[in-house]
């Protein structure tokens, strides 16, 4: 599904990712954990195609194609979805209109028939129920005046509606209380599928109690320094990121 090899990325002249490699197969859930400043959000942004992220070396393959040469909308149509750490408020753009425009734009790019408003609303109702979202959110402007929890749930709602092949969750748990986090996790778990992969980027182990990963990676200093099964997340929780850093001190350091 996703193969990242020796990825180097500069942001504003500073190298943030320094040789990151990672492979996720269809159906797998990979957690990316790491301290602040390790490059976690950079990874999400560079995979989604945000401007200002300069790839200086390395490759990213998504289903056999070079992901890095695609525009953000082409990546979306190919099946890549980024749930934002800070979802953007767009005043004046109705949420329902936005969702339908997005879904139909993707379908057009894939050569599929667009959904009419009846078909679209039917799909929306199904997905709303799973996330316990209020209808009322559909009639408001995109994310405008949403609480932190509503914004994150709206991201997962979009994920459910757009049904991507690869979903990247960028610190979706940040700013959520335990109830909201459970709702978000329920939404994600309902989307787990043998044909769909997840990259769950998080600072804390807590979310991974609810979205149980197949693989846990530790991202530090711009690289994956350790990978393991779900128990690695618990070790990190117990010992802190310093524990990993100590085991992977650069050669020559004390």
């Amino acid at each position: 599904m996703l193969k990242i090899d020796n990825l180097h990325v500069r942001v504003a002249g500073r190298e943030i990712l320094k040789g990151l490699s990672l492979e996720a197969k269809a159906g797998e859930v990979h957690a990316i954990m790491g301290p602040n400043g390790a490059g976690k959000s950079t990874l999400g942004n560079v995979l989604a195609g945000r401007e200002g992220y300069e790839v200086t070396a390395g490759t990213v393959e998504f289903e056999g194609q070079n992901l890095l040469e695609l525009a953000p909308e082409e990546r979306a149509a190919a099946g890549v979805f980024l749930a934002f750490q800070y979802p953007v408020e767009i005043p004046g753009v109705n949420n329902t209109y936005f969702l339908r425009a997005a879904l139909n734009a993707q379908r057009r790019q894939r050569g599929e028939a667009e959904l009419d408003s009846m078909q679209f609303l039917k799909k929306v109702r199904e997905k709303l129920a799973v996330l316990h979202l209020k209808d009322e959110l559909l009639h408001r402007a995109v994310n405008e005046g949403f609480s932190g929890g509503e914004k994150k749930r709206n991201e997962i709602f979009q994920l459910a509606l757009l049904e991507p092949k690869l979903a990247i969750l960028d610190e979706t748990d940040s700013g959520l209380d335990i109830d909201a986090m459970k709702l978000v996790a329920d939404g994600v778990n309902a989307m787990r599928d043998p044909a769909r992969s997840f990259l769950v980027i998080t600072h804390y182990q807590r979310l991974l109690d609810y979205i149980v990963p197949d693989v846990v990676h530790v991202l530090a200093e711009g690289r994956i320094v350790e990978s393991g099964d779900r128990t690695l997340a618990h070790e990190l929780e117990a010992h802190g990121y310093g524990w990993v850093a100590g085991r992977h001190a650069p050669a020559g350091a004390a």
Partner: peptide
């Protein structure tokens, strides 16, 4: 135009020119 909002719309599959039109109409 708000670059953040443009990028957000594009990551949902909306092409750049359509995203620009949506934001200008909203404005």
């Amino acid at each position: 135009l708000d670059e953040q909002a443009l990028f957000y719309l594009r990551t949902r599959g909306i092409p750049l020119d359509a995203a620009r039109r949506i934001l200008v109409s909203a404005f």
